[in-house]
Design a protein around this nucleic acid. Structure first.
Lengths: 97, 97
DNA sequence: GCTACCAATATCGTCAGACAATACTATGAT
DNA sequence: ATCATAGTATTGTCTGACGATATTGGTAGC
């Protein structure tokens, strides 16, 4: 239930971080954990894939220490989605706080 | 996708309104619509049912103009869930704004 | 040059949730 | 009697979440 609520927040976090720097799976999991969101790889990777598939993120593969890393960064579409989300957060804040 | 994000917001709105006054289905749909969230009855009612089942809301049936209305109000558990959500909103705001 | 471990991403199976469409219930209006 | 209206409920389908497990390519110790 709380999970249901927080999953949206997690997506926003992802978009936000991808707008500030390139992100990749494991590091993002770590980052989210610092914010108190525990997310397993079985949840995160499908989210990243669908964000990419839907055009909110683009991917770039890079080999780091011999391991392939999938770096994601935000797209124009992602930015405008993030802006929309921010507006809603603003509105929500005014309403409930 | 955006839907995925906003569904969490919708739940928060519901908890919030149920903490301020008694709510019922159709009126809540209307209220959400004013905030720009279009939600169908097939989505809202299951959400209300599960919020009740999980102990975040309590229900009271009342006959109004001959029609049964299910009024919901928040419980202690609901209040503390709402508080948790607010903390996360606060955190999210600081992060992305 | 085998074994064990590590970093990172991927997938599978199951169960829960979203939603539009449709139905149900009870009343009031003409 | 018929129709409209207010309100809640359900069904069938498709999507998503998640833990567990697998995969890939390296590095380290010995």
């Amino acid at each position: 239930m709380m999970r249901n609520i927080f999953l949206g927040f997690i997506r926003i976090h992802i978009l936000h971080h991808a707008s500030e720097e390139e992100i990749f799976g494991v590091a993002m999991m770590e980052e989210l954990r610092r914010h108190g969101y525990l997310i397993s790889s079985g949840t995160l990777y499908p989210i990243l894939h669908s964000l990419e598939e839907d055009g909110y993120l683009t991917r770039r593969d890079e080999v780091v220490n011999g391991k392939v890393r999938k770096y994601y960064r935000i797209t124009e579409k992602g930015i405008s989605a993030l802006e929309d989300a921010k507006k809603k957060i603003q509105e929500l804040t005014e309403e409930v706080m």
